[in-house]
């Protein structure tokens, strides 16, 4: 079971900020494929992963990164701080 978090327009498209997901996905890309297969709103949010960023346990990572041992995955658009 991992915590999956969504921010900014990803959160708005999916319609929730956080959920627990039971998954055996090996990589972030596998998790994205699983979520996208669930419902249209997920497919829409994940339709272009080049427009998204991912953090694993609060560190920026990549979509091909393994999920083994990861407790928290976050998806969000490119950051606009400052």
């Amino acid at each position: 079971m991992i915590d999956v978090l969504y921010f900014a327009w990803v959160r708005e498209r999916i319609g929730l900020p956080k959920e627990k997901v039971e998954t055996s996905a090996a990589t972030v890309a596998d998790l994205v494929a699983e979520l996208s297969a669930r419902e249209e709103r997920y497919a829409l949010a994940f339709s272009d992963t080049s427009a998204l960023r991912v953090a694993l346990d609060q560190d920026l990572s990549d979509f091909d990164a393994p999920l083994a041992g990861v407790r928290e995955v976050a998806f969000f658009p490119p950051m606009t701080g400052g």
Partner: peptide, 8 residues
């Protein structure tokens, strides 16, 4: 901070 701190 502009592109590596998680603010939107």
């Amino acid at each position: 901070l502009k592109s590596r701190a998680p603010f939107w």
